[in-house]
């Protein structure tokens, strides 16, 4: 593959999914029916504000659904991945795998350095 087409493939990666925190959120959601916000907070190590901001972007992009309710007096936020979110994650993985596969192997000289 030529360099320009490789750059094209990199540019074609979904930027909404590509951001590490959003990728992590999607990776958690993809294998569950519904996930409580608290679990994401626990496993991601992200702050509440940071997580909420990424969550909002994914929701605006239609990749996740956010349900807000109350459990007793405590607010409860639950997240669910949408069909579009599943497809976006699968497409992203496929695209990334293609890009990585076609990267040139590091040369011996570069390894010595």
């Amino acid at each position: 593959m030529s360099a320009p087409s490789r750059i094209g493939e990199v540019m074609a990666l979904d930027r909404l999914v590509h951001e590490p925190a959003r990728l992590l959120i999607l990776a958690v959601l993809v294998n569950a029916k519904e996930v409580e916000f608290g679990f994401l907070e626990q496993v991601s190590g992200l702050s509440k504000g940071n997580l909420s901001s990424h969550m909002g972007k994914l929701e605006a992009g239609g990749l996740i659904e956010v349900k807000k309710s109350f459990r007793g007096k405590r607010p409860l936020t639950e997240l669910r991945i949408t069909a579009a979110g599943r497809k976006a994650l699968a497409d992203y993985r496929q695209g990334l795998a293609m890009v990585v596969q076609e990267l040139p192997a590091p040369s011996v000289a570069a390894k010595r350095k």
């Binding site: 029916k33 519904e34 996930v35």
Partner: peptide
């Protein structure tokens, strides 16, 4: 305890 995660059947 870390938060509810509903299993996908």
């Amino acid at each position: 305890r870390l938060g509810h995660v509903e299993e996908q059947e």
